[in-house]
Design a protein around this nucleic acid. Sequence first.
DNA 1: CTCTGTGAAACACTTCACAGCG
DNA 2: CGCTGTGAAGTGTTTCACAGAG
Lengths: 208, 208
Amino acid sequence: MKDIPRATVRRLARYLQGLDEVASLTVSSNDIANAVGVSAAQVRRDLSYLGHQGIRGVGYETDHLRSTLRRELGLLENVGVAIVGAGHLGQALAGYGGFDERGFTISGLYDVDPRKVGNVVHGYPIKHLDRLSDDARARRFAIAIIATPAEAAPEVLRRLAEAGVRSVLNFAPAALRPPSSVEVRNVDLSTELQILSFYRGRQSNGAG
Amino acid sequence: MKDIPRATVRRLARYLQGLDEVASLTVSSNDIANAVGVSAAQVRRDLSYLGHQGIRGVGYETDHLRSTLRRELGLLENVGVAIVGAGHLGQALAGYGGFDERGFTISGLYDVDPRKVGNVVHGYPIKHLDRLSDDARARRFAIAIIATPAEAAPEVLRRLAEAGVRSVLNFAPAALRPPSSVEVRNVDLSTELQILSFYRGRQSNGAG
DNA sequence: CTCTGTGAAACACTTCACAGCG
DNA sequence: CGCTGTGAAGTGTTTCACAGAG
């Protein structure tokens, strides 16, 4: 089976979410395309990387497609996620909603503030940061979200990497230099705003 | 002057931030490449879209490059940003830090909760959502960040679009269908986690 | 001799358009 | 007939490799 293009992986996640709103037994590439805002040809091409999933003249069987996408994304069973940093951002992330139904389970929040440790936020316990490494080694989570201040981010990443965590989503506005064993995805507010700023005044669209 | 590729625009914002850490008078494409994690050839190609900026045998003059990037990104003077939704996420965004130095000024937060309206968060006033349209029409901000619950997002977008706002950064986990006049960039937690999940176990990297 | 700027080649991704299955 | 799956063409992006400026 050929490698799935990076651009396709990103859209597969969107298709999976688009299917949430679908009640009918089957969906056509056109339905999906309209739901998530890409071309129908794009949807068919993307899904073709997963093998023959559709029925000609009909479309895709909704349930079957959903589980194929989940399997392909490694979400057959829920994946544990740790949130590091229990400030406003960390708490907002914990309350984001729909974690479980999207295939994730928050294993816990971590902070260094003794006034926070022990509290429960949105049903999740705040643990002391010193327990992060042990919990990682015990495989209580597979993905970590860094929601600390920028200064703390490199040290948190170091601990995570050392404890064998290989997937990190970084919200701290810090340029992290991960070892090659760790995949870091950065969500950077000012980068996003700067991109929007560039296109301000230009007519073109930007479905990034 | 040729059009700047989308992929390049995204990186220009990163280069600008990378320059923050540079103290020396000049930087080479290699220096920048190492700072932000792309290839040196990529940096040179990207910067070449801005015209001849460098000095052969030396590199780029740091200050000059910084202001060229700022100009190109439309950040010569600070851009007003409204944060819609003053829950944990909105408050976290307001406290993100470095807004001003990155070229943005928060013009205000908006919420519907009467207990929040009138409060000041991180130095920014929370206004009632009903004032959003007027403030937009008065051009108090050019970019809006949606940090509301998913249910509220479509209506907020509608109001923003109607009031002439053309750039929106959406943090709500909702599939927005903007009119073509509005550029929406989505930051979706579960999409990011699902992408990380896909690459978990695979060796390859993924600098999105 | 170093480091930029850039043709040309390579690679990645998207769209077109249609054969063929159900 | 409708809708998938996919060659082939088109477009966008990255890398190579080197001429040439300082």
